[in-house]
Simulated scan of single mutants.
Amino acid sequence: MSRIAVIGGTGYAGRHIVAEAAQRGHTVLVVARKAVSDRVEHAMYLEGSILDVPTLVTEMQGVEVVIVAVAARGDMAGMLRPAVAELAAELPPEVRLGVIGGAGGSRVSPDGPRLVHTPEFAEEYKPEALEALAILEDLETGAERDWFYVHPAGGFGPWNPGERTGSYRDGGPVLVVDPDGESMISGADLAVAVVDEIE
């Protein structure tokens, strides 16, 4: 079993990853900016922020995988990219790094543009999507460690919770859609995919 830290582990994606990993018997450390009363059984909780990388690295000693499940929106807009770069540079080299991005960084086809660069992509979500994409590009060009990055489906979020089916499709860099052109995954099934990747 792995020792996993989930930064942003009380948010939508993060709490599902925490629950799935704990249910499978992994040791899970939840990092959140505020204490919460609704906790996942068998997970440990730590108040902390990705904006304070030196303290986090010290407090996460012994973990084997760190997942960043923080969105580049609200007060994190413009702050997440440099924080993830600092984290990637400061974690011990044997620690695997995972980042949960957004659907906007997915390609529409293997050689096609990224979703965020298409005319249909909503303007209001572009800043968040572009920062998430920049984090991926930073990892691709500079991270000297084992890392992975997950683009959720287009219809991923608390407004579309769905249920756990235990299955998912991996499109690599391409957005996965069904025969009707819909792109959906529940929080629980995204967590299955992430924990499968860790294992």
Rank of each mutant, 00 (worst) to 15 (best):
2 S>Q: 14
3 R>K: 14
4 I>Y: 06
4 I>W: 03
6 V>Y: 12
7 I>T: 09
7 I>C: 09
8 G>Y: 05
12 Y>V: 01
13 A>C: 01
20 E>C: 09
22 A>L: 15
23 Q>H: 10
30 V>D: 03
34 K>Q: 10
36 V>K: 12
38 D>C: 13
39 R>M: 07
41 E>M: 02
49 S>F: 07
49 S>Q: 08
50 I>R: 02
50 I>N: 01
51 L>Y: 08
51 L>Q: 10
52 D>P: 04
52 D>W: 00
54 P>M: 06
54 P>A: 07
58 T>G: 13
62 G>V: 02
63 V>Q: 08
64 E>Q: 12
65 V>R: 07
65 V>K: 07
66 V>H: 10
66 V>F: 12
70 V>W: 07
78 G>C: 01
82 P>R: 02
82 P>H: 00
82 P>T: 03
83 A>M: 04
83 A>Q: 05
84 V>P: 10
87 L>Y: 10
88 A>M: 14
90 E>Q: 15
90 E>V: 15
94 E>V: 09
99 V>L: 09
99 V>F: 11
100 I>E: 04
102 G>Q: 08
107 R>Y: 03
110 P>R: 00
111 D>Q: 15
112 G>V: 10
112 G>Q: 11
113 P>F: 11
117 H>A: 05
125 Y>T: 01
129 A>Y: 08
130 L>F: 11
134 A>W: 07
135 I>N: 09
135 I>Y: 11
140 E>C: 07
140 E>V: 09
140 E>Q: 12
144 E>H: 14
152 P>Q: 03
153 A>Y: 01
159 W>T: 10
160 N>W: 05
162 G>E: 05
165 T>I: 06
172 G>Y: 01
173 P>Y: 01
176 V>M: 07
176 V>L: 07
182 E>S: 09
193 A>M: 14
193 A>D: 13
193 A>Q: 12
198 I>W: 10
198 I>E: 08
